[in-house]
Design a protein around this nucleic acid. Structure first.
Length: 287
DNA sequence: TCCCAGGCGGTAG
DNA sequence: CTACCGCATGGG
């Protein structure tokens, strides 16, 4: 078992990071710690006396895995400073979610996860991903308990549309099935895609995948490719943006393109990060 | 019983 | 190009 201790981190709050809706595979334990699966490894994170402690088995460089996944090479104080200075709303939302970091999640896992997210709620998304991993992912042990990796494209391609339907994917079954096939057969090349410079070219590639529309593509860009210059618009973000800036009586009528433009103007190349603070702030304080 | 959830794909105008 | 609709499922 490896152990990695983090001290004096400018922003790292487990609840903010794991509850802000960017990831689906971290679960809070009774002792307050979180356990999740990063690629091939089960990781446990706990907070003791303002120190963050990571535990896990790792076949390669444990510390590097953690540093990369939690984006610890990036100084969020600068980001937060910039955003806080934009206006009072951003100041409040950043203060509320001060411990947020954008995780660097696996692209493939991100794609499937957010296809499943369509017209779905977060608890059920988590359940479905758990079931997928249990059924098609490789078993690993941690602290005497069983966990399951997220299935590889090869493994998931063994599932028929009906299999997926039986796991509770609903109408998303075909989308996951088709996209898995496309990626497995290299009709969509994720390695090539992740090396693209231009965010819009990346988005175009993602949009070719079945079940990936504008919102899902932007989530993948933000959470799987760390493109902070995208602004995923869902019901919550539309709500908070309308409440704060637009004040349309009928929030449903708020034009998405207009909103997109407004976000880019206000938040610039950090609009994805701004989205995350706003989303978390609004969702947590209105529940 | 109805409504909603991190939307998307298809079709029609 | 925009506007609408159907879609599976589970929880409130």
């Amino acid at each position: 078992m490896e152990k990695y201790i983090l001290e004096n981190q400018d922003s790292f709050k487990m609840s903010d990071i794991f509850d802000c809706g960017q990831c689906f595979r971290w679960n809070k334990q009774q002792d307050g710690s979180f356990i999740g699966v990063i690629k091939d490894a089960v990781i446990k994170v706990e907070e003791v006396d303002n120190k963050i402690i990571f535990y896990g088995e790792s076949n390669s460089n444990f510390k590097e895995t953690i540093n990369y996944y939690f984006d610890l090479y990036t100084n969020y104080a600068e980001y937060k400073n910039k955003l806080s200075n934009i206006d009072k709303n951003l100041y409040e939302s950043v203060k509320f979610g001060e411990g947020i970091r954008i995780l660097r999640q696996d692209l493939w896992e991100c794609i499937i996860s957010f296809i499943i997210s369509a017209n779905n709620n977060i608890p059920r998304i988590k359940k479905i991903i758990e079931k997928l991993s249990f059924a098609y992912g490789e078993k690993i042990y941690f602290d005497g308990k069983e966990y399951y990796k997220f299935p590889t494209p090869e493994a998931l391609s063994k599932a028929s549309i009906e299999d997926l339907r039986n796991l509770g994917l609903g109408f998303r079954d075909k989308r996951v099935y088709n996209t898995t096939k496309m990626i497995l057969e290299k009709k969509a090349d994720l390695d090539k895609l992740s090396k693209l410079e231009n965010t819009n070219l990346m988005r175009e590639e993602l949009l070719k995948l079945d079940g990936v529309g504008p919102k899902v593509a932007d989530c993948i860009l933000l959470f799987g490719l760390k493109r902070l210059d995208v602004f995923p618009i869902d019901v919550w973000v539309r709500r908070v943006m309308n409440d704060l800036y637009i004040h349309n009586d009928d929030e449903e009528k708020v034009n998405k393109k207009e909103l997109q433009k407004l976000a880019e103007e206000k938040f610039g190349n950090l609009c994805g990060l701004a989205q995350q603070y706003l989303f978390y702030w609004k969702r947590e304080t209105s529940a």
